[in-house]
Design a protein around this nucleic acid. Structure first.
Lengths: 220, 220
DNA sequence: ATTTTATGACTGACTAGTCAGTCATTGTCA
DNA sequence: TGACAATGACTGACTAGTCAGTCATAAAAT
């Protein structure tokens, strides 16, 4: 079925020698415009209710052009998720220096997450995946494989380190890194759904949560 | 005016074995069948992708019948959410006796939540609300008003009691009852999306989380 | 001039919502 | 009690509209 990698993605081979506004470049720009527009529309309306005409209009492109880049609506959605998520994973995988206390590490993660995800388009994407996941097993699979399982593994490693160093009391926590992450996820969803009813100070909430796990912070 | 339909349930002679279908009863049954079918379909496909024909077929009813009970697809969805949620709220509002430790109370809540929500159709409904909320402000509003704000308030009261009684150390927790609830919500979502990849022992996870908040449990 | 890329009018499949007609149930009267 | 009339719940074929995907044509690049 969708075995095809679609139209050859303009992955320019390492070298460039090619003038900036080559075909490949233009194609890549158009593709990016389509991805951005699609992101916007899918987040606002969900998969089924999004019209390709709207995506095309927003991207400043004719509808037919979309089909030069994507096989159909479904695979566009799937590729969109991949396209947007991969760089985020890459960024998070670029681990910070293993210096300082575990709490500092976790806090670095948290503040990064706060800035890069909560209340941003990427946060909305998370909600979108939760929303459409059951109807797009391939998306859910991908997300689990690339983001969730890695994230859980990384958090577990951190927790174990924290336990080993005596920073974390509750040793069972290592079995459920989800607990460490849960408030952050809740914050993402809260901002999408209830921000207008009751804004949430995500940063402060995460701080309190970390106090709960690591104990009250002394002085820094 | 004897115009009243008088839901005359008494019409059926006591001894008769035919109380099967008065008009009113049948109507109520049909409405219930439609609500059930709609719930199933909306959960499986989301709002936009659900066909009224499918709901009708599943409910064993003609499409036109749906319109005798609901104005249109949108208000059907909205009423559906209300219909399903109200009894749950009622149940949770029936507070347990204020006996025992706060931890016991919270644990009672948790185990109730586990049994009644996580991994059930109601859990899927929560996911559905997260999914469709942004496109159905009225649903999100209703859910916030009837479930979220009450739940948060209730949890806050419990936390404050726990703090007053010395069961809970972290006094800032009262400002973010979301932290108390977060793992439970994550469990709901996890079961919907990732259960097949990595089943989650929600009960055990919640126990660990409560240990984190209340401190390790002594004896039971 | 030829090939590649882009366009947008067009098509056909699909579906929310309607409504004229049917008929089981209920009410009335002899 | 039985026959007949009134009611309105129920049906499903139909309408009007939508939208994913196509393709003949045009523009741009080479």
């Amino acid at each position: 079925m969708t075995k095809e990698p679609t139209t050859s993605v303009a992955v320019s081979p390492a070298g460039e020698a090619v003038p900036l506004s080559s075909r490949a470049t233009r194609a890549a720009e158009r593709r990016a415009a389509i991805v951005d527009a699609a992101m916007e529309e899918f987040i606002a309306r969900g998969f089924a209710a999004t019209r390709l005409d709207d995506i095309a209009k927003r991207a400043g492109v004719a509808k037919g052009t979309i089909y030069l880049h994507f096989k159909d609506k479904e695979s566009m959605f799937e590729e969109l998720v991949r396209t947007v998520i991969v760089p985020v994973v890459a960024k998070l995988t670029a681990l910070p220096p293993p210096t300082g206390s575990v709490r500092d590490l976790v806090e670095a993660f948290a503040s990064n997450f706060l800035k890069e995800v909560i209340g941003t388009r990427r946060g909305d994407l998370v909600r979108l995946i939760v929303a459409e996941g059951p109807r797009f097993p391939s998306v859910a699979d991908f997300y689990y494989r690339e983001v969730v399982s890695r994230g859980i593994a990384g958090m577990r490693a951190l927790i174990e380190l924290g336990i080993a160093r005596g920073e974390i009391r509750e040793t069972d926590l290592a079995r459920y890194p989800q607990i460490l992450v849960a408030p952050a996820m809740i914050a993402v969803i809260w901002q999408s759904l209830f921000a207008r009813h009751a804004p949430l100070d995500a940063q402060d909430m995460l701080r309190v949560h970390l106090d709960l796990i690591f104990g009250e912070r002394r002085t820094t």
